[in-house]
């Protein structure tokens, strides 16, 4: 926020950083194995069109994962993101229906603002109402979705209601990379730098790893928590607008169930549910890994009914593997320090 680089942390940072690297290296390796393995069986998997689809599928989830990561770092959780995506997608669509000539950037600004407001509701409940984040956001998951149902009331936004330029944004590309993917990469990069190098960003880690120490260090916990939730909401709101651009058709159920995919991606990517640990790079790779696994199953013609079971098993395997890897790394690090 202030632009001042964070002071170097405790000496533990050294083995800590190594541990993080282990997590991400193992993830990237897993990603390569799955991708190349699938491609070996069906080379079409690595064709340009199929990769483009893959990245487009992952982009929106990866975007929401950015916000969720910030929340998880603070040792909170945001279950309401899926409902924020849905409400933002439908309302920004309605905006285009009401004002067909609306300039495109305004739709994005609208999504961001709406999301920030909804996220602030969560932030208020958690930071000032002292409601545990799981409870607060489970509640707002219901409430925001209910509001969406009430607003939509059987309606639907169709691609024909939307300006072609807006839909073109989703399908368009620069140098072969879809706009949607580029935008998400930019957001990830920006937040990656913010979380890694700026005081404001480091505060999320501090909050999650030791809240009491964070208070003693002079961090305004309430304000930081509030900003975190507002950011997560704003990102989910933006994701809603992109969802609309990508899918064109939006009804009241848009985005339902997204929250579990997002949390799964972050956790697979090494973001700890116990706060304070994880990077956006890892979370992004986690989202990509889940996306690749999903489409690999389809490409390999896994029977439809097995897909969900296999995905669940893979998710568990990823979490367990990650835990074992980090544990052995921690043990090694501890041994190294002792000698």
């Amino acid at each position: 926020m202030t632009g001042r680089a964070a002071p170097t942390l405790a000496p533990s940072q050294n083995w800590f950083a190594r541990l993080l690297r282990v997590r991400e290296v193992s993830l990237v390796a897993l990603l390569l194995i799955v991708t190349l393995g699938t491609a070996a069986i069906n080379p079409l998997f690595l064709s340009f069109g199929s990769l483009k689809d893959l990245f487009l599928n992952v982009a929106i989830i990866a975007l929401v994962v950015v916000g969720e990561t910030i929340i998880l770092l603070m040792k909170h959780v945001d279950l309401s993101v899926s409902s924020v995506v849905g409400l933002s997608a439908f309302l920004s669509g309605s905006l285009f229906v009401a004002f067909p000539g609306l300039p495109l950037p305004l739709a994005f600004v609208f999504g961001l603002l709406l999301g920030a407001v909804l996220g602030s509701v969560n932030g208020l409940l958690v930071a000032y109402g002292k409601v545990p984040a799981l409870v607060a956001t489970l509640g707002t998951l219901y409430v925001f979705r209910g509001v969406t149902y009430a607003v939509v009331h059987g309606g639907q936004i169709n691609a024909s209601n939307l300006p072609p330029a807006f839909l073109g944004f989703a399908t368009g590309s620069v140098l072969g990379i879809p706009n949607l993917v580029l935008l998400v990469l930019v957001v990830m990069l920006g937040f990656g730098i913010y979380l890694g190098n700026y005081r404001g960003g480091r505060e999320y880690y501090a909050l999650g790893s030791n809240a009491e120490a964070a208070v003693l260090a002079g961090i305004n916990v309430k304000r930081r928590t509030m900003i975190g939730f507002a950011l997560s909401g704003a990102i989910a709101g933006l994701a809603g607008v992109l969802y609309l651009a990508r899918f064109g058709t939006v009804d009241a159920t848009a985005g339902t169930g997204l929250e579990l995919q997002v949390i799964a991606a972050a956790v697979v990517g090494g973001v700890s549910i116990n706060g304070g640990v994880g990077t956006l790079f890892g979370a992004g790779v986690g989202a990509l890994l889940l996306g690749v696994m999903g489409s690999a199953l389809v490409t390999l013609r896994a029977p439809g009914f097995y897909q969900q079971a296999i995905q669940g098993a893979l998710l568990l395997a990823a979490i367990s593997f990650d835990m074992l890897a980090s544990r052995s790394a921690a043990r090694r690090a501890a041994k190294g320090r002792q000698s």
């Binding site: 998997f45 199929s50 490409t299």
Partner: peptide
């Protein structure tokens, strides 16, 4: 394939069909 009468799921299932 089953799109569960959900727009997004149907969309990605269609994509998967063409790929597989």
């Amino acid at each position: 394939a089953y799109g569960n009468d959900e727009d997004q799921k149907s969309f990605t299932e269609m994509q998967g069909l063409l790929q597989a």
